[in-house]
Every structure is written in structure tokens, then in C-alpha cells.
Simulated assay, not measured.
Amino acid sequence: MSGQDTAGGTWSAPGRVNLIGDHTDYNAGFALPFALPQRTTVTARPRTDGRVTATSGDLEPGDFPTTTQPGDVTGWAAYVAGIAWVLGEHLGTPVPGADLQIVSEVPVGSGLSSSHSLECAVALALLGLAGAEVPREELALLVQRAENDYVGAPTGLLDQTAILRSQDGHLSFFDARDLTVEPVPCDLDAAGLTLLVIDPHAPHQLVDGGYASRREACERAARELGVPTLREVEDVDAALASLTDDETRRRARHVLTENQRVLECVALARRGDLAGIGPLMTASHASMRDDFANSVPVVDRTVEAALAGGALGARMTGGGFGGAVVALVPREAVPEVRAAVTAAAADAGLEAPVVLDVRPSRGAGRD
């Protein structure tokens, strides 16, 4: 403890995009996310009645005691309450009461980790009011616990880690087994490239059976292979050949080949060959679409349109079952890619996608 913050303050946390490496985190594998420029901002003021209030735009306000327990709060405020609960458990005493005013630039339901952005910003705000500090790697685990045990979403550690530990201008090479993060330089301007995040309005839902069933399939494959996690598989071809159930084999194949693609992307980025990452991104999307079966038609159509418009690579990003697309694009081709994905949506009778030009940005902190 370093003394409670009696004046309050403002903290913020970014959304995140995973350049490559989805559904590898809970398999103790590799991923390559980065923090978005778009952030969730929490302005916190202390209160003395042992309650937390949370307001955000037109959403119904949340109001609950600092002694909240899982099941007490539902809806969007459960993400806030879950953080208050898990921090109280960790600190051994309830967090201070607080009024939290929340504003977010992170698109909701697009696979850009709006919920984890919210949770990480709230966590830093409540810790700040409490005058407490928690190492970032430990805080990521606490946020994961809030998501798993209070909200009820069986998410891994990728999002929280990227949001809390990213550095400006760098990708974050995440090793989920060792919980290490290595910053990898990503100078898009020098390479004449940009990253587009394309939101085709395909609602992204993780608190349903899709994510959980994929995780269960990976755990089943590991048990059949006699390893703690799929990370420990050394001979990929032999392992896949030994799995007799086709669905289990395909789920495992995505994870095992995705780990290889992440390592190849890191090697390319370290050499400054960012353009070489494009084909690996596209191969990753095909793996998620065909082996992991967590894509949806509107996302596939968006990936195809981005590639036809001149993107070097494109893929769905995040947990899947909806969400956004990330595309690596030569800067001169950005107008053509924007036009292509917009035309594809119009042809399908859909709303025009939101296209964001993004770059790796700073992680969460006090503003």
C-alpha cells in the first residue's frame, strides 16, 4: 500500500488487436497482439459508504457494495463488479467505495476486447484509490479470474496481458506458458504499411457455448496425446495422426499450426520484413475458418474483400464467432481496401463496415 488516493483521478486502458495467434493462450502457446489507440477511460472519485457506482453513456448505471460476490450483479456492470470482487479477495479487504465515470472509444462486440479494456481500466482506478499496487503480470491473472468466475466467460490471458503490458510502437510477443511478454518493434511507416481494423458489424459473443466447446476440444486433444497442454507437442504431424476424432484433430491442428505461424511472424518482424507477415495472417484466417470453425460468413466475406482490394494479408481477430478483421495494407492501397470492403457489404445488403487505421500503442496506465 502506498496511501489511498483521496482526490481520485483518471485511468485508461486500450483495446487490443491480435495480429496473429488466436486460441493459443489457453493452450500455453504463443500470440502476437498489440494495443490499439482507442481506449476506455475511467474517471474515479472516492466515496465513503462502501459502494461502487458505474456510469457509462446511456447504459443503465451500476450500483453495488464493495463486498459484492459472483451472481450479485449482471449485465455490463458485472465486468466492473467482478474487478471489485477479485481485488477485494486479493487485497484481503474490500476496495474503497468509488464513483466511476466510464467513456470508451473501443467498439463493443467487435472482438477488440472492449470488456477487458474496461476491466483493466477499472482495476487500475480501484487500485489507485486504494493506494495499492499489483505487478502487471499478476494483475492480468486477477482480471482473468474476474472474467472467468464473476462474468462467466472462460477467457484466457491474452487480452489482459496485451492491454496491461504493451509498449507504444511495438507488437507484444506473448508466451502464455511462461507469462512473458517481449516487445517486438513494428515500424509501419518505415515499411510503407498500415494496419486496418475492419468492423463489419458481426456481433462478437464469448459468453455462450462456442468458445467453451473449442477450449474443451483442445483440452481433450492434450489428454489423448498425454501432454499437459498442446504447447508440449513436438512432432505435430505424428500428434495429429494419432487423434482419431476428426473434430478434435482439426481443433488441435489450428492451435499447433498457429503457434508455428506466430513464431514465423516474430522472426519476420525482428528482421523488419513486416510485409512478409501478410500471407501468414491469411493462412491463420483459413485455419480458424476451416479447422477451428469459429468464423462467420460476414467476416469471411470481409477478409476476401480486403485481399481483393490489395491487402497483403487479412484475418479475423479475437475469439471469433463474429468480431473484427485486421488487414495489413500498403499505404497506397488503403483507399482501394476501404472501397472493397464497403462494396462487399453493400452487395450483401449489410451496413457499411467501420474501418480504423491503427498502429501499436501504449498499454494501460494513469492519464
Rank of each mutant, 00 (worst) to 15 (best):
G3T: 13
Q4N: 13
D5V: 06
T6P: 04
G8N: 06
P14Y: 07
N18E: 04
I20W: 05
I20H: 00
G21A: 10
D22W: 00
T24S: 13
F30T: 03
A31Y: 00
A31W: 00
A35F: 06
R39S: 08
T41C: 09
R51F: 13
T55V: 15
T68E: 04
Q69N: 10
D72W: 06
T74M: 01
Y79W: 07
G82R: 02
W85H: 15
G88T: 04
T93S: 15
P94M: 07
V95I: 11
V95K: 05
A98H: 11
L100Y: 06
L100R: 02
I102Q: 07
S110F: 07
S110I: 02
L112I: 13
L112H: 12
L118F: 08
C120S: 14
A123Q: 10
A125G: 12
L129G: 01
A130H: 11
A132M: 08
L141P: 06
R145E: 13
R145N: 10
P154W: 10
G156M: 05
D159N: 01
S166V: 00
D168K: 14
L171Q: 00
L179H: 13
C186R: 01
A190G: 14
A191T: 05
L195C: 03
V197D: 05
I198G: 00
A202M: 07
V207L: 09
G210D: 13
G210Y: 01
S213F: 01
S213G: 03
R214C: 08
R215P: 05
A221R: 02
A222M: 09
E224F: 04
P228L: 09
P228D: 15
E232T: 07
D235S: 04
A239K: 05
L240Y: 08
S242W: 02
S242C: 06
D246F: 04
R251E: 08
T257L: 14
E258S: 07
V262P: 01
L263T: 13
A267E: 15
D273W: 04
L274H: 06
A275C: 09
L280Y: 10
M281H: 05
M281A: 08
S287Q: 11
S287Y: 07
D291S: 04
A293W: 02
S295L: 05
D300C: 10
D300P: 12
R301Y: 04
V303G: 08
A308V: 10
A311R: 09
A311V: 03
V325N: 06
L328W: 05
P330M: 10
A333Q: 15
A344G: 11
V355L: 12
V358A: 11
P360L: 01
A364Y: 10
D367A: 15
D367G: 14
